[in-house]
Design a protein around this nucleic acid. Structure first.
Ligand SMILES: [Zn+2]
Ligand SMILES: [Zn+2]
Ligand SMILES: [Zn+2]
Ligand SMILES: [Zn+2]
Lengths: 148, 148
DNA sequence: CTAAAACCTCCAGTCATTGGAGCTTCAAGC
DNA sequence: GCTTGAAGCTCCAATGACTGGAGGTTTTAG
């Protein structure tokens, strides 16, 4: 609890992010503005530390900043129903599942391309041939990824 | 074979991409500059069509533009050894595998968060609680994704 | 009081496109 | 040959989520 008035560098280390990231979050209104010293330097307290930890953890879990903005607002409504928060998480899970499915398709094709020994000429290379002609692919693998 | 002199819109439709994308590829030197009409409009032939198809297919398979640039150069060396092309594809496959592993981790955490019924208050919501405290996570899920 | 570490603001760049403004050219029908 | 609408042109800005740098100021330990 010696962090009643942390400078930004200490906060950044505690959150495991860059100083610029914190200023960026403040700039877009995701993290409330810090109080300033007489010389305009930011000083943070426990509330800021918790909010930033929440943001960073959500980012690690792949949530987008707009989604995190909503989640942060919801987190402050302690007595409200959590359906909306759950909906956001579920939507993100679906997006993660779609991306996994897409990458699985890519993996299949890449592995297929690479099923040939060493010492080939380019004109016999399955990697190059496949890239030049989708008919050598085993699937459609037509990609489209959306985020939460 | 009536495409000896395609305007850009026809080429774009044949490749399934936007007109701007083609001009962008030309701008960064990925696709060779097209010949122009007296009025400066681009006209394409079969070679361009094939190169663009190669690029688009590689993009669908998740290769980065720098990687595609190398692959295109290699594709023209028909008698060279294909080891380098294979290496690029293998590196990309590894990156895809890393991303799948990461997303699998995220999926696990998101599913865990969502294991609670409806009608909860925010203060009892596992989604919000998990985001606020990584100790509720089952794994480290510390993300880092690199592309080919 | 000095010096260096930490901080400040503002701007540009990343990646692979995409969209738009404002203008010109092409091609088909009359 | 002329009109007209579709298609093309260049240049610039925006996307998401940061990251890096220039150039200057503040803090703090010694
Ligand atoms: Zn090969
Ligand atoms: Zn394919
Ligand atoms: Zn809930
Ligand atoms: Zn966690």
């Amino acid at each position: 609890m010696a962090d009643v008035s942390m400078p930004i560098g200490v906060l950044a280390r505690s959150a495991g992010c860059k100083i610029q990231t914190i200023r960026y979050y403040e700039g877009i209104g995701l993290l409330p503005a810090a109080r300033r010293t007489a010389g305009s330097q930011r000083r943070y307290g426990e509330t800021h530390r918790q909010k930033l930890a929440f943001i960073r953890h959500a980012r690690e879990l792949g949530f987008s900043l707009p989604a995190i903005r909503e989640l942060l607002a919801l987190a402050d409504q302690r007595e409200s129903d959590c359906a909306e928060a759950d909906r956001i998480a579920r939507r993100h899970l679906e997006s993660v599942n779609r991306r996994i499915a897409m990458l699985d398709g890519l993996r299949t094709e890449l592995e297929l391309m690479l099923t040939h020994g060493q010492g080939n000429r380019i004109r016999d290379c399955r990697v190059i041939a496949t890239l030049a002609d989708h008919r050598l692919c085993s699937q459609s693998h037509h990609a489209e990824a959306t985020d939460s």
